[in-house]
Structure formats: structure tokens, C-alpha cells
Computed example of a mutant assay.
Amino acid sequence: MDATIYHNPACGTSRNTLALIRAAGIEPTVVEYLQEPPTREQLVAMIADAGLTVREAIREKGTPYVDLGLDNPDLTDEQLLDAMVATPILINRPFVVTPLGTRLARPS
């Protein structure tokens, strides 16, 4: 099975998810998204395919979420996506994309 994980090796949940995928006998394509962020179009597709809202796909902990004013409930999805594309650490992780679907693997 083809699988892609948008991975941050510094994240325990991301490391655990990668280990689970490999334990299932699948060697996924590993995209270290902080060095190789998804395009805006890819990000929009992953969020939609996972059945999430844009706000649900934002990582708050350990990011400049509050410093950038992203906690403002009046921000639009477009503004939130702009921030995620400009600052990829704001993308929650790990996203896993397979032919069966896309999931934000939290918890792993």
C-alpha cells in the first residue's frame, strides 16, 4: 500500500505513528514537512480529505499560534491557511495519506 506521512522527527506522536505504519509492513514516503512543506493546495486537500476544519488542523502547542494572533476566532480559513503555509510548524502532525483516506494521526 502506498502511504505518505507528513512527519516531524522531533514529535513523539509522529515517531510513534511512523513506527506503527512500518510495523504493519508498509514503508511510507516520509515527508519532513518542516523542510518540505505541503503546498497550499496539498494542505487544503489533506484537511478536507481528513474531514477536519482548518482550525482543527492547526497546532497550537509549541508554535507561535498566540503570538501570530491565530487565537482570534474571527480569522477566516484563508487567513489561517496563509499562516500555516508561511509557518509550517503550525500544521498539526502527523498527517497520513493513503489510498484508503487521509487522517491526522492524533493520537497515534
Rank of each mutant, 00 (worst) to 15 (best):
L68P: 03
Q79W: 05
V66A: 13
E41T: 13
R93F: 04
D2R: 11
K61A: 11
E56T: 00
L34G: 01
L70Q: 13
T98C: 07
G62F: 03
A83E: 06
N16Y: 13
R40L: 09
T87Q: 15
Q42F: 09
H7Y: 13
L18I: 07
D49G: 13
P88K: 14
Y65A: 04
V44N: 07
R15D: 08
P88M: 08
R40G: 00
P94I: 09
K61L: 06
T17K: 04
N8H: 10
A48T: 13
I91C: 00
D71T: 13
M46Y: 07
M84C: 02
Y6C: 01
R15G: 01
L20H: 13
N16A: 14
G51M: 00
L70I: 04
E32C: 02
A24P: 02
L80A: 08
R93N: 06
A50Q: 10
D74S: 06
Q35K: 14
I21Q: 03
T63G: 01
R59V: 02
T13N: 15
T39H: 07
V31N: 06
S14G: 13
G25K: 10
A57V: 12
E41H: 08
E32K: 02
L81H: 06
V54E: 05
P88R: 11
L52E: 05
V85K: 04
F95K: 07
P88F: 15
L70Y: 09
E27K: 03
E56Y: 06
P37A: 10
D74A: 14
V97F: 09
H7K: 07
P64I: 00
V31G: 04
A19Y: 00
D71F: 04
E41W: 11
Q35G: 13
A48D: 11
R55M: 05
V85C: 03
T39V: 04
E56F: 09
S14V: 04
Y6S: 00
T17F: 00
T98H: 03
A86D: 02
L18Y: 14
G12M: 11
I5G: 01
V44T: 14
G12V: 15
I5Q: 08
E56D: 15
V31A: 07
E56V: 01
R59E: 12
I89R: 11
I26D: 07
P107T: 10
I91A: 00
R59S: 01
Q79S: 03
R103H: 01
D67M: 08
C11K: 03
P38D: 02
A45Y: 04
T76Y: 12
D49I: 11
M1I: 14
A48L: 02
D49V: 02
I26Q: 09
D77C: 12
V54Q: 07
L100I: 01
L43A: 01
A57W: 05
A24I: 10
G51Y: 12
I58D: 00
T87F: 06
P37M: 11
R106I: 09
P94N: 06
R103A: 13
L43C: 01
R55S: 11
P88D: 01
L75A: 06
P73F: 06
A19T: 12
P94T: 14
V31R: 15
D49H: 15
T4Y: 09
E56H: 13
I58W: 05
E41I: 08
A83W: 06
N72W: 00
N16E: 15
G62I: 08
E36L: 10
D49F: 03
Y65R: 05
P9F: 10
L70T: 02
A48C: 05
Q79V: 01
